[in-house]
Amino acid sequence: MIFRRGVIAAIFLLAGTSISNAEIIAPENVTIVDGEVAMSLTGSAGNAEAGATVFGNKKLGNCLACHANKDMIKQLFHGDVGPEMDGVADRWEPQQLRAILVNSKAVFGDETVMPGFYSLEVGQDVRKDLIGKTILSAEQIEDVIAYLSTLKE
């Protein structure tokens, strides 16, 4: 009886997962209009705490490599290639931040060194195991947007 309940729960869990995955906008289907991506990539708002983890993690977003951020002052090696993140929520709307994170080159032009974190347009000489993959997932993008939205002056 316990096994049967577990199987039924697993089926419902998997069904829920597939429904939520159906809401995710695939990278090739994201549209940037006037420097904005209006809709959430996942159909829901992100988690700011998870976004802070992605932002500061060198194996995920590695955003600190280019952007100083007083909110993470205890972490070492803040970069100065990109703008400071202090007050970013006062300068950009979430839909603008989403476009920048998805594909910064579509917003700022090809000269920007910022990668497109949810784009398949990754340039030349990509490792074969990374072809067709994004740097961050749709959920991670939404989490970073939620975190950046907390950074006000």
Rank of each mutant, 00 (worst) to 15 (best):
M1H: 08
I2A: 13
I2Q: 13
I2N: 10
I2P: 05
F3P: 02
F3Y: 11
F3W: 10
R4P: 00
R4H: 06
V7C: 10
A9L: 14
A10H: 01
A10R: 01
I11N: 07
I11E: 05
F12P: 01
L13A: 12
L13T: 05
T17V: 03
S20W: 07
S20M: 04
I25V: 15
I25W: 03
I25G: 09
I25Q: 11
A26E: 13
A26I: 03
A26N: 09
P27N: 03
P27M: 00
V30G: 04
V30Q: 08
T31Y: 02
I32W: 10
I32D: 08
G35P: 08
G35K: 03
G35T: 06
V37K: 12
S40T: 08
S44P: 00
A45S: 14
A45R: 09
N47S: 10
A48Q: 07
A48I: 08
A48C: 08
E49Y: 09
A50K: 15
T53G: 14
F55D: 05
F55I: 08
N57S: 15
K58F: 10
K58G: 13
K58I: 14
K59D: 15
L60N: 14
G61I: 11
N62S: 14
H67F: 08
H67V: 05
A68Y: 13
K70V: 03
D71T: 12
I73D: 10
I73R: 10
K74W: 11
K74R: 12
K74S: 09
Q75I: 14
Q75C: 01
F77H: 13
F77E: 14
G79D: 09
G79Q: 10
D80T: 14
V81M: 10
V81P: 01
G82P: 07
P83W: 00
P83M: 07
P83V: 05
G87M: 07
G87L: 06
D90M: 03
E93N: 00
P94R: 05
Q95D: 12
L101N: 06
V102P: 11
S104Q: 04
A106E: 13
F108W: 06
F108H: 07
F108V: 00
G109V: 03
E111W: 00
V113L: 09
V113D: 07
M114L: 06
M114A: 07
Y118N: 02
S119N: 08
S119L: 05
V122T: 14
G123D: 09
Q124R: 14
Q124D: 15
D125N: 15
D125Q: 13
V126Y: 12
V126G: 09
R127K: 12
R127N: 13
K128P: 12
K128C: 00
L130W: 15
I131V: 15
I131H: 09
I131L: 15
G132F: 10
G132E: 12
T134I: 04
T134A: 04
T134C: 05
I135G: 05
I135M: 13
L136T: 06
S137A: 07
A138H: 00
E139W: 01
E139I: 04
E139N: 08
E142M: 06
D143H: 07
I145S: 08
I145A: 07
Y147T: 04
Y147V: 03
L148S: 05
S149L: 07
